[in-house]
């Protein structure tokens, strides 16, 4: 620990900055980990329930059980829009969606909007992980360069260049790069992992949207 306490003020500031980056990025990693885990689990269970149920209103009444799944948001939005379309058509001529496929377009738009909103929610805070992963090594490197500059200045003043004089200064400086890497490596790994998991969820949302629209269209065509 003496290696940190004996470092210069700039190196200490760099270390503090990197430490705060690390704390925040680990906070995001933990948060995202649980968020993605819950979203995956709830989506799986929701899809099982969705295919087992035969009526949309039955699903809508149970949808709160899967609150963490992004698919439930899509279903809610699609179902809400569908109800509006059905009510509007019933009021207009009473023939209830017999040939009007414009209603399906409305549902499709509502689902697309909900998908975008869910993608934004899932990708929230991930940019900080990317920033930490890409900038922390450079911030650490800055601390190291500064520390080595200061160490060489001290060596120049004392006029001695023995290993015992040079080594502690360089060791103090290199700690900044080490901490920078310690902050960056988990951030980059977590960013790539969550990107992959979110891409899988986006694919699931696209598939669900297609299935939902197919069901709606089949029902409209059947009437």
């Amino acid at each position: 620990m003496g290696i940190i306490t004996s470092a210069g003020i700039v190196v200490k500031l760099v270390l503090m900055l990197l430490l705060s980056f690390s704390v925040v990025s680990w906070g995001i990693i933990l948060f995202k980990f649980f968020q993605v885990q819950r979203a995956n689990g709830d989506s799986e269970r929701f899809m099982d329930f969705f295919w087992k149920s035969k009526r949309f209103d039955a699903i809508a009444s149970q949808v709160d059980r899967f609150a963490n799944s992004p698919l439930t948001v899509l279903f809610n939005e699609g179902y809400k829009e569908l109800k509006i379309v059905v009510e509007t058509d019933s009021k207009s001529d009473g023939s209830a969606l017999s040939t009007d496929l414009g209603g399906v377009e409305n549902v499709s738009r509502a689902l697309r909007r909900a998908t975008n909103s869910e993608i934004t929610r899932l990708e929230k805070y991930l940019t900080f992980l990317a920033t930490t992963g890409s900038t922390s090594p450079f911030i650490g490197l800055f601390g190291t360069v500064w520390g080595i500059m200061t160490a060489f200045e001290g060596i120049g003043k004392t006029g001695s260049a023995s290993l015992a004089v040079v080594a502690p200064g360089i060791a103090e400086a290199l700690i900044a790069t080490a901490i920078g890497l310690v902050a960056a490596i988990p951030a980059v790994m977590a960013y790539n992992h969550f990107q992959h998991k979110i891409r899988v969820l986006i694919n699931e949302m696209d598939s669900f949207t297609t299935e939902f629209l197919n069901i709606v269209q089949r029902n409209i065509a059947g009437k």
């Binding site: 680990w26 906070g27 990693i29 933990l30 948060f31 948001v73 939005e77 909007r113």
Partner: peptide
Amino acid sequence: MISRNPPIDTGMSVSFIASAVIH
């Protein structure tokens, strides 16, 4: 139209505290 409240974001502060404790 999207009625979903973000209840999960409340977990963010818990995550930060956990992260600080880990550090």
